[in-house]
Design a protein around this nucleic acid. Structure first.
Lengths: 144, 144
DNA sequence: TGTAATCTCTCCAGTCGCTAGAGGTTCAAG
DNA sequence: CTTGAACCTCTAGCGACTGGAGAGATTACA
Protein backbone atom coordinates (compact mmCIF):
# COMPACT_ATOMS: atom_id res chain seq x y z
CA UNK A 1 0.00 0.00 0.00
CA UNK A 2 1.19 3.49 -0.87
CA UNK A 3 0.90 6.67 1.15
CA UNK A 4 -0.21 9.75 -0.71
CA UNK A 5 3.36 11.00 -0.97
CA UNK A 6 4.61 7.77 -2.54
CA UNK A 7 1.66 7.70 -4.88
CA UNK A 8 2.39 11.24 -5.96
CA UNK A 9 6.01 10.42 -6.62
CA UNK A 10 5.13 7.28 -8.55
CA UNK A 11 2.64 9.08 -10.76
CA UNK A 12 4.39 12.43 -11.01
CA UNK A 13 1.54 14.30 -9.37
CA UNK A 14 1.78 16.64 -6.40
CA UNK A 15 0.16 15.64 -3.14
CA UNK A 16 -2.38 18.50 -2.95
CA UNK A 17 -3.39 17.71 -6.50
CA UNK A 18 -4.23 14.13 -5.53
CA UNK A 19 -6.41 15.36 -2.69
CA UNK A 20 -8.01 17.80 -5.10
CA UNK A 21 -8.74 15.00 -7.57
CA UNK A 22 -10.39 13.02 -4.79
CA UNK A 23 -12.45 16.03 -3.79
CA UNK A 24 -13.83 16.56 -7.28
CA UNK A 25 -14.43 12.87 -7.85
CA UNK A 26 -11.69 12.11 -10.37
CA UNK A 27 -10.24 9.65 -7.87
CA UNK A 28 -12.41 7.59 -5.51
CA UNK A 29 -12.29 8.18 -1.76
CA UNK A 30 -9.16 6.52 -0.48
CA UNK A 31 -8.94 3.87 2.22
CA UNK A 32 -7.50 5.15 5.46
CA UNK A 33 -4.89 3.89 7.88
CA UNK A 34 -5.58 3.59 11.61
CA UNK A 35 -4.27 7.15 11.93
CA UNK A 36 -6.56 8.47 9.18
CA UNK A 37 -3.96 8.71 6.45
CA UNK A 38 -4.85 7.82 2.87
CA UNK A 39 -3.65 4.50 1.50
CA UNK A 40 -3.57 3.54 -2.14
CA UNK A 41 -3.19 0.35 -4.16
CA UNK A 42 -2.00 -0.37 -7.66
CA UNK A 43 -5.38 0.39 -9.16
CA UNK A 44 -5.38 3.97 -8.01
CA UNK A 45 -1.84 4.39 -9.21
CA UNK A 46 -2.92 3.28 -12.66
CA UNK A 47 -5.90 5.56 -12.61
CA UNK A 48 -3.79 8.51 -11.52
CA UNK A 49 -1.19 7.81 -14.20
CA UNK A 50 -3.99 7.78 -16.74
CA UNK A 51 -5.22 11.14 -15.50
CA UNK A 52 -1.75 12.57 -15.51
CA UNK A 53 -1.07 11.46 -19.02
CA UNK A 54 -4.37 12.76 -20.30
CA UNK A 55 -3.71 16.12 -18.64
CA UNK A 56 -0.29 16.20 -20.29
CA UNK A 57 -2.08 15.80 -23.61
CA UNK A 58 -4.27 18.76 -22.77
CA UNK A 59 -7.56 17.00 -21.98
CA UNK A 60 -9.80 18.83 -19.53
CA UNK A 61 -10.72 17.16 -16.27
CA UNK A 62 -14.28 16.91 -17.55
CA UNK A 63 -13.11 15.05 -20.64
CA UNK A 64 -10.94 12.86 -18.42
CA UNK A 65 -13.91 12.02 -16.25
CA UNK A 66 -15.67 10.76 -19.36
CA UNK A 67 -12.63 8.83 -20.55
CA UNK A 68 -12.26 7.20 -17.16
CA UNK A 69 -15.85 6.07 -17.04
CA UNK A 70 -15.45 4.68 -20.55
CA UNK A 71 -12.35 2.75 -19.59
CA UNK A 72 -14.40 1.10 -16.86
CA UNK A 73 -16.65 -0.45 -19.53
CA UNK A 74 -14.28 -2.49 -21.73
CA UNK A 75 -17.07 -4.17 -23.70
CA UNK A 76 -18.62 -0.97 -25.01
CA UNK A 77 -17.79 0.64 -28.33
CA UNK A 78 -14.86 3.00 -28.32
CA UNK A 79 -16.65 5.56 -30.49
CA UNK A 80 -17.15 7.93 -27.58
CA UNK A 81 -13.49 7.79 -26.56
CA UNK A 82 -12.57 8.30 -30.17
CA UNK A 83 -14.69 11.40 -30.49
CA UNK A 84 -13.32 12.93 -27.30
CA UNK A 85 -9.81 12.46 -28.64
CA UNK A 86 -10.80 13.86 -32.01
CA UNK A 87 -12.29 16.94 -30.38
CA UNK A 88 -9.07 17.41 -28.47
CA UNK A 89 -7.02 17.09 -31.63
CA UNK A 90 -9.22 19.67 -33.29
CA UNK A 91 -8.82 22.05 -30.36
CA UNK A 92 -5.04 21.64 -30.46
CA UNK A 93 -4.99 22.34 -34.17
CA UNK A 94 -7.07 25.46 -33.79
CA UNK A 95 -4.71 26.71 -31.13
CA UNK A 96 -1.78 25.98 -33.40
CA UNK A 97 -3.25 28.06 -36.20
CA UNK A 98 -3.84 30.91 -33.84
CA UNK A 99 -0.44 30.71 -32.18
CA UNK A 100 1.33 30.69 -35.53
CA UNK A 101 -0.45 33.94 -36.41
CA UNK A 102 0.58 35.43 -33.08
CA UNK A 103 4.15 34.33 -33.64
CA UNK A 104 4.24 36.03 -37.04
CA UNK A 105 2.81 39.24 -35.67
CA UNK A 106 5.11 39.36 -32.67
CA UNK A 107 8.08 38.59 -34.87
CA UNK A 108 7.19 41.50 -37.10
CA UNK A 109 6.80 43.77 -34.10
CA UNK A 110 10.14 42.84 -32.62
CA UNK A 111 12.09 42.78 -35.88
CA UNK A 112 10.99 46.27 -36.82
CA UNK A 113 12.09 47.77 -33.55
CA UNK A 114 14.64 50.48 -34.25
CA UNK A 115 15.78 50.58 -30.62
CA UNK A 116 15.03 54.27 -30.35
CA UNK A 117 12.56 56.00 -28.06
CA UNK A 118 9.04 54.99 -27.16
CA UNK A 119 7.72 57.74 -29.44
CA UNK A 120 8.81 55.83 -32.53
CA UNK A 121 8.67 52.36 -31.05
CA UNK A 122 7.07 49.87 -33.39
CA UNK A 123 5.96 47.64 -30.53
CA UNK A 124 3.90 50.36 -28.92
CA UNK A 125 2.66 51.67 -32.27
CA UNK A 126 1.37 48.30 -33.44
CA UNK A 127 -0.34 47.62 -30.15
CA UNK A 128 -2.06 50.96 -30.34
CA UNK A 129 -3.30 50.46 -33.86
CA UNK A 130 -4.50 47.11 -35.06
CA UNK A 131 -4.55 48.27 -38.67
CA UNK A 132 -0.75 48.22 -38.57
CA UNK A 133 -0.95 44.45 -38.29
CA UNK A 134 0.13 42.46 -41.29
CA UNK A 135 -2.36 39.67 -41.10
CA UNK A 136 -5.55 39.38 -39.18
CA UNK A 137 -4.65 37.39 -36.11
CA UNK A 138 -8.14 36.60 -34.98
CA UNK A 139 -9.53 38.57 -32.11
CA UNK A 140 -10.01 35.77 -29.66
CA UNK A 141 -7.95 35.81 -26.55
CA UNK A 142 -5.14 33.37 -26.03
CA UNK A 143 -4.95 32.00 -22.53
CA UNK A 144 -1.34 31.64 -21.66
CA UNK B 1 -18.85 61.14 -24.56
CA UNK B 2 -19.43 57.41 -24.65
CA UNK B 3 -21.39 55.29 -22.22
CA UNK B 4 -19.79 52.07 -21.13
CA UNK B 5 -21.85 50.07 -23.60
CA UNK B 6 -20.81 52.21 -26.56
CA UNK B 7 -17.20 52.09 -25.46
CA UNK B 8 -17.37 48.33 -25.24
CA UNK B 9 -18.84 48.07 -28.71
CA UNK B 10 -16.28 50.45 -30.15
CA UNK B 11 -13.35 48.57 -28.64
CA UNK B 12 -14.74 45.05 -28.89
CA UNK B 13 -14.68 44.53 -25.13
CA UNK B 14 -17.56 43.37 -22.96
CA UNK B 15 -19.04 45.77 -20.43
CA UNK B 16 -18.15 43.79 -17.28
CA UNK B 17 -14.60 43.48 -18.58
CA UNK B 18 -14.30 47.25 -18.78
CA UNK B 19 -15.48 47.60 -15.19
CA UNK B 20 -13.00 44.87 -14.25
CA UNK B 21 -10.16 46.73 -15.95
CA UNK B 22 -11.07 49.84 -14.01
CA UNK B 23 -11.16 47.87 -10.79
CA UNK B 24 -7.67 46.47 -11.23
CA UNK B 25 -6.25 49.76 -12.43
CA UNK B 26 -5.73 49.00 -16.12
CA UNK B 27 -8.15 51.79 -16.92
CA UNK B 28 -8.42 54.96 -14.80
CA UNK B 29 -11.57 55.71 -12.83
CA UNK B 30 -14.15 56.99 -15.24
CA UNK B 31 -15.97 60.32 -15.04
CA UNK B 32 -19.61 59.94 -14.07
CA UNK B 33 -22.86 61.40 -15.38
CA UNK B 34 -25.34 63.11 -13.07
CA UNK B 35 -26.96 59.71 -12.62
CA UNK B 36 -23.66 58.00 -11.72
CA UNK B 37 -23.06 56.29 -15.03
CA UNK B 38 -19.57 56.06 -16.43
CA UNK B 39 -18.63 58.36 -19.32
CA UNK B 40 -15.60 57.94 -21.55
CA UNK B 41 -13.71 60.06 -24.06
CA UNK B 42 -11.51 59.25 -27.02
CA UNK B 43 -8.43 58.77 -24.84
CA UNK B 44 -9.95 55.91 -22.92
CA UNK B 45 -11.16 54.33 -26.14
CA UNK B 46 -7.59 54.37 -27.44
CA UNK B 47 -6.26 52.96 -24.22
CA UNK B 48 -8.85 50.19 -24.22
CA UNK B 49 -8.14 49.34 -27.85
CA UNK B 50 -4.47 49.07 -26.95
CA UNK B 51 -5.29 46.71 -24.11
CA UNK B 52 -7.58 44.67 -26.29
CA UNK B 53 -5.00 44.30 -29.00
CA UNK B 54 -2.27 43.36 -26.59
CA UNK B 55 -4.55 40.74 -25.01
CA UNK B 56 -5.27 39.37 -28.47
CA UNK B 57 -1.54 38.94 -28.90
CA UNK B 58 -1.41 37.00 -25.64
CA UNK B 59 0.20 39.57 -23.36
CA UNK B 60 -0.74 39.23 -19.69
CA UNK B 61 -2.47 42.10 -17.95
CA UNK B 62 0.69 42.62 -15.92
CA UNK B 63 2.74 42.98 -19.07
CA UNK B 64 0.08 45.30 -20.47
CA UNK B 65 0.27 47.46 -17.38
CA UNK B 66 3.99 47.87 -18.02
CA UNK B 67 3.46 48.57 -21.71
CA UNK B 68 0.84 51.19 -20.92
CA UNK B 69 3.06 53.01 -18.48
CA UNK B 70 5.84 52.93 -21.07
CA UNK B 71 3.58 54.38 -23.72
CA UNK B 72 2.92 57.30 -21.38
CA UNK B 73 6.60 58.24 -21.53
CA UNK B 74 7.35 58.80 -25.24
CA UNK B 75 10.83 60.18 -24.65
CA UNK B 76 12.25 57.12 -22.90
CA UNK B 77 14.09 54.30 -24.64
CA UNK B 78 11.96 51.56 -26.03
CA UNK B 79 14.26 48.81 -24.77
CA UNK B 80 11.83 47.78 -22.04
CA UNK B 81 8.91 47.52 -24.45
CA UNK B 82 11.11 45.57 -26.79
CA UNK B 83 12.08 43.07 -24.13
CA UNK B 84 8.48 42.53 -23.04
CA UNK B 85 7.56 41.77 -26.64
CA UNK B 86 10.56 39.48 -27.03
CA UNK B 87 9.60 37.55 -23.91
CA UNK B 88 6.10 37.16 -25.29
CA UNK B 89 7.45 35.90 -28.59
CA UNK B 90 9.59 33.38 -26.75
CA UNK B 91 6.61 32.17 -24.73
CA UNK B 92 4.53 31.78 -27.89
CA UNK B 93 7.31 29.78 -29.54
CA UNK B 94 7.64 27.47 -26.56
CA UNK B 95 3.93 26.82 -26.64
CA UNK B 96 4.12 26.10 -30.33
CA UNK B 97 6.80 23.46 -29.81
CA UNK B 98 4.75 21.81 -27.16
CA UNK B 99 1.47 21.96 -29.06
CA UNK B 100 3.06 20.42 -32.13
CA UNK B 101 4.16 17.46 -30.03
CA UNK B 102 0.64 17.13 -28.63
CA UNK B 103 -0.80 17.27 -32.10
CA UNK B 104 1.47 14.46 -33.29
CA UNK B 105 0.60 12.27 -30.32
CA UNK B 106 -3.14 12.86 -30.59
CA UNK B 107 -3.00 12.20 -34.31
CA UNK B 108 -1.32 8.89 -33.69
CA UNK B 109 -3.91 7.99 -31.07
CA UNK B 110 -6.84 8.80 -33.28
CA UNK B 111 -5.43 7.31 -36.47
CA UNK B 112 -4.76 3.97 -34.84
CA UNK B 113 -8.28 3.63 -33.54
CA UNK B 114 -9.81 0.45 -34.95
CA UNK B 115 -13.34 1.50 -34.00
CA UNK B 116 -13.88 -1.62 -31.97
CA UNK B 117 -14.56 -1.91 -28.25
CA UNK B 118 -12.98 -0.05 -25.38
CA UNK B 119 -11.00 -3.17 -24.52
CA UNK B 120 -8.83 -2.77 -27.59
CA UNK B 121 -9.17 0.97 -27.98
CA UNK B 122 -5.90 2.65 -28.78
CA UNK B 123 -7.01 5.93 -27.27
CA UNK B 124 -7.62 4.42 -23.87
CA UNK B 125 -4.54 2.21 -24.10
CA UNK B 126 -2.18 5.06 -24.87
CA UNK B 127 -3.60 7.21 -22.12
CA UNK B 128 -3.13 4.37 -19.67
CA UNK B 129 0.46 3.75 -20.64
CA UNK B 130 2.80 6.57 -21.46
CA UNK B 131 5.42 4.18 -22.84
CA UNK B 132 3.11 3.62 -25.81
CA UNK B 133 3.82 7.19 -26.83
CA UNK B 134 5.94 7.72 -29.88
CA UNK B 135 7.82 10.76 -28.79
CA UNK B 136 8.25 12.30 -25.44
CA UNK B 137 5.71 15.08 -25.31
CA UNK B 138 7.02 16.83 -22.27
CA UNK B 139 5.20 16.39 -19.04
CA UNK B 140 4.13 19.92 -18.46
CA UNK B 141 0.50 20.67 -18.51
CA UNK B 142 -1.08 22.57 -21.33
CA UNK B 143 -3.65 25.08 -20.19
CA UNK B 144 -6.39 25.11 -22.74
C1' DT C 1 -46.53 62.96 -19.57
C1' DG C 2 -46.62 58.00 -19.09
C1' DT C 3 -44.59 53.81 -19.58
C1' DA C 4 -41.93 50.20 -21.34
C1' DA C 5 -37.59 48.70 -22.91
C1' DT C 6 -32.97 48.97 -22.55
C1' DC C 7 -28.85 50.39 -20.12
C1' DT C 8 -26.30 50.92 -16.23
C1' DC C 9 -25.17 50.56 -11.27
C1' DT C 10 -22.99 47.67 -7.24
C1' DC C 11 -21.87 43.52 -5.20
C1' DC C 12 -21.03 38.81 -5.04
C1' DA C 13 -20.16 34.17 -6.73
C1' DG C 14 -18.44 31.06 -10.17
C1' DT C 15 -15.13 29.35 -13.87
C1' DC C 16 -10.48 25.94 -14.36
C1' DG C 17 -6.90 23.41 -12.34
C1' DC C 18 -4.51 23.70 -9.24
C1' DT C 19 -1.29 25.94 -5.29
C1' DA C 20 -0.14 27.65 -0.81
C1' DG C 21 -0.76 28.49 3.94
C1' DA C 22 -2.28 27.83 8.88
C1' DG C 23 -2.53 24.94 12.51
C1' DG C 24 -2.70 20.41 14.01
C1' DT C 25 -1.73 14.91 13.99
C1' DT C 26 0.76 10.64 12.75
C1' DC C 27 4.62 8.06 11.63
C1' DA C 28 9.45 6.31 10.96
C1' DA C 29 14.27 6.81 12.15
C1' DG C 30 17.82 7.27 15.44
C1' DC D 1 11.85 9.27 23.48
C1' DT D 2 12.55 12.77 20.60
C1' DT D 3 12.97 14.87 16.39
C1' DG D 4 11.48 15.93 11.93
C1' DA D 5 9.21 14.63 7.88
C1' DA D 6 5.00 13.52 6.09
C1' DC D 7 0.30 13.63 6.74
C1' DC D 8 -4.51 15.72 8.05
C1' DT D 9 -8.50 19.49 7.26
C1' DC D 10 -9.87 23.83 5.98
C1' DT D 11 -9.63 28.06 3.65
C1' DA D 12 -8.14 31.37 0.38
C1' DG D 13 -5.77 32.76 -3.78
C1' DC D 14 -4.11 32.79 -8.82
C1' DG D 15 -5.52 35.01 -13.92
C1' DA D 16 -8.80 37.03 -16.55
C1' DC D 17 -12.75 37.31 -16.78
C1' DT D 18 -18.18 36.01 -16.76
C1' DG D 19 -22.73 35.92 -15.05
C1' DG D 20 -26.58 36.96 -12.03
C1' DA D 21 -29.52 39.59 -8.64
C1' DG D 22 -31.80 43.51 -7.59
C1' DA D 23 -32.01 48.38 -8.02
C1' DG D 24 -31.58 52.89 -10.45
C1' DA D 25 -30.96 55.75 -15.01
C1' DT D 26 -31.99 56.82 -19.59
C1' DT D 27 -34.20 56.66 -23.98
C1' DA D 28 -37.96 55.88 -27.40
C1' DC D 29 -42.32 56.20 -28.53
C1' DA D 30 -47.46 56.89 -27.82
Amino acid sequence: MLTIGKLGQAAGVKVPTIRYYEQIGILPEADRSAGNQRLYGRQTLERLAFVRHARDLGFSLDAIRDLLSLSDRPDRSCAAADSIAKAQLLAVRQRLVRLRALEAELERMVDHCAHGTIADCNVIAVLGDHTLCARDHDPRIEHM
